[in-house]
Design a protein around this nucleic acid. Sequence first.
DNA 1: CTAATCTCAGGCTTACTGAAATAG
DNA 2: CCTATTTCAGTACGCCTGAGATTA
Lengths: 149, 149
Amino acid sequence: MLPPSTPRLTALTPYLLSTVGKVARTLVGDLLAARDLRLWDMAVLAVLADHGPLPQRDLAERLALHPSDVVKVLDGLARRGYVDRARDTADRRRVLAGISEPGLRVLDELVAEVATVHDDLLAPLDAAERATLHALLLRVHAHAVGGRP
Amino acid sequence: MLPPSTPRLTALTPYLLSTVGKVARTLVGDLLAARDLRLWDMAVLAVLADHGPLPQRDLAERLALHPSDVVKVLDGLARRGYVDRARDTADRRRVLAGISEPGLRVLDELVAEVATVHDDLLAPLDAAERATLHALLLRVHAHAVGGRP
DNA sequence: CTAATCTCAGGCTTACTGAAATAG
DNA sequence: CCTATTTCAGTACGCCTGAGATTA
């Protein structure tokens, strides 16, 4: 094993956030890959579950995901029957996407599985410290993404 | 502005880490792009500054960067004169990479600039909270990357 | 002869850019 | 005519695979 630390990097909170975030991304991504899903698939399902049917434009804005990629993600989710798409009758330019019953079930399973990643990743912290970290990140998150989740 | 939160996602610490980490990555990446540098360039310079000349193999292991990409990063840094490469006379398979004087100067400037990203990103937190966040992340980081920075 | 190190070419995924098609 | 939304094609980057060359 090599020496443990590169002080010039680990002294920088943005570096730690970036690196730990990357690990979190990879862990959750691997978990989703077991079902042949990707991170955006889960994010889209969660937003649709929390905020009902949405036009793709709003979906893109909420997730800071490019509209052209929303199409691809929804294509995959619709193919599996996890979302339903329908033209908005009031404004026929819009396509409303909503989560289906099977989609909701899968989402609940995924959320439960992410809890295990949570435990692995935050193993060195006790319950109070985890809560503190979560609360701090929540505030940084709200600020960083401008109120969007 | 859209409603602020997707509870199913923001309740998950791995999601917050992943998202905030991505923002941090983007902010630092933009800062580096102004000098036509990338994140790996800064990371490599920092490791070389902290741990003296290293064979590329060790550099790759420390940063969890693929050896074949180490070559490309060092090519770019050597072209700018930020690193020096020389065959290890003791083991001529190895190429020792070290940071140069100009490289050290640039690195110091970059570290100073990252401090402004730090301030932007952590604006909602006071000094004590920033210290707490950093300490918690440091422990999670050490655990997540197995002691490597 | 086997293994380690570096190098190079290329594939795959993700994120983005730009433009076409449809509708208001 | 101009804007909004969706869609599609193509680019750039990060991450990885595999193979070749050199040396231990």
